[in-house]
Design a binder for these strands. Structure first.
Lengths: 223, 223
DNA sequence: CCGATATTTTGACGCTGTCAAGATAGTCTT
DNA sequence: AAGACTATCTTGACAGCGTCAAAATATCGG
């Protein structure tokens, strides 16, 4: 039975449905997302998903878990392209977050909705925790702490980084920041966000190396 | 005809539907929001709303406009409780934003969704612009500019303030910030947010009055 | 090869948003 | 004041949705 291969009528329909749901979300958005649409996309009847997912929130939880995994992967990759523990690494991690929001806007909207998917899904919880661990560890490296969330002085740093980046992403997707002429998403992501990160972290925290030529924020090899 | 008074069968059903929709959103949330539910709540047939709103997004646009107006009113009121042009005013404006998010979470989720309502609604656009003008003017006062959005140096300040406050609100509603024991919304709003505002603005901008005893951030008379 | 089991389909239910047609009230003109 | 007009609301219908129960089908263990 356990042959998740070519077979369809008997194969790995559960995985196929998750993949279909991912496509459905990407193409139709959260509003146009439909359980029956996922079933059609997977080539099965409208009631087939019920045997693998108790309801639509269970399926969306799997899609959200994928989203969190992708977010973790992107922020991690961006962050690894700058020297560990530098403010440039914070800026790069932030750029990764914004890139995810820009490239997967519907996933972004989904994972931060919370009322649309089953929050008790274990894979989702693990993926969410892993995604949130990336900025936490970036702050930890920056401030030389192994566990920033247990340091009362560092918690506001973590929450601040996270809030700036997340709020910026949300407003960007809303179109609120690109309304002025000549402002593209790339300038927002590559210029304005690093500037804000620097303003938040470069002062009042470390007084050393105040002028490390913040203009170049490390634009490394692969994305 | 123009008697928006007691009458029902012939009266001001349009306003009654908007009021019903506001209640429906507050009680049922955006997921449970239903056009037919609004009609029931207003005591009319299920198709009555069609004569006043072309579709559900048109009705939600009116509710969103109300939401923006309330947001503007609250941030304005909070901001007016601190001396003009001070960092305390920025912190108070931020507290107003968070208070709105906390007291009207479903309205907050609606107005920053954008795909659920008709964005071309004039009253909505006006209310949205008015709401966004509050933090812009707060930054203007703080930095002594009449039109901050036309100053390339101040735009990141406005966007930064806005991003921090908005992102913090969103994460707070998601429950992501109150997961640790002993952390309530009040401590988030009254302590952590002012701390973040100070970190972002107190350095690198004005170097004067660095130690104004930031513990007391003006907790004035009413609200 | 056959019975047991897992998987999928068919059909139904109540709900939704939207539209068309009919009913009803108020207003206006003369 | 009476009749026509118009705005307003109701009724009824349609397709699509999520979910459930029952029937049908395929796979596997023996």
């Amino acid at each position: 039975m356990r042959a998740p291969e070519n077979a369809y009528h008997h194969g790995d329909l559960r995985a196929a449905l998750i993949a279909a749901a991912d496509e459905e979300l990407s193409e139709n958005g959260l509003n146009g997302f439909t359980l029956r649409g996922c079933a059609r996309r997977a080539g099965v009847s409208h009631a087939a998903p019920a045997h693998h997912f108790k309801d639509i929130t269970a399926l969306l939880a799997e899609v959200a878990a994928n989203g969190f995994e992708r977010l973790a992967e992107i922020t991690e990759r961006f962050g690894s392209n700058a020297p560990l523990g530098t403010i440039e690494q914070l800026a790069e991690t932030a750029r990764g977050y914004l890139t995810f929001a820009s490239e997967y806007p519907h996933h972004f909207r989904l994972i931060f909705n919370g009322e649309r998917y089953d929050r008790t899904n274990p894979r989702l919880q693990a993926a969410g925790a892993a995604a949130f661990r990336v900025p936490v560890e970036a702050i930890g490296s920056y401030r030389g702490s192994a566990d920033p969330m247990s340091d009362p002085d560092l918690i506001p740093q973590v929450v601040g980084l996270w809030s700036i980046v997340h709020g910026f992403s949300d407003l960007m997707l809303l179109g609120q920041l690109t309304s002025r002429p000549g402002v593209t998403r790339r300038t927002l992501i590559d210029e304005m966000m690093p500037k804000m990160i620097r303003q938040f972290f470069e002062n009042g925290v470390r007084k050393q190396k105040p002028a490390s030529r913040p203009r170049s924020v490390a634009r490394p090899r692969r994305n």
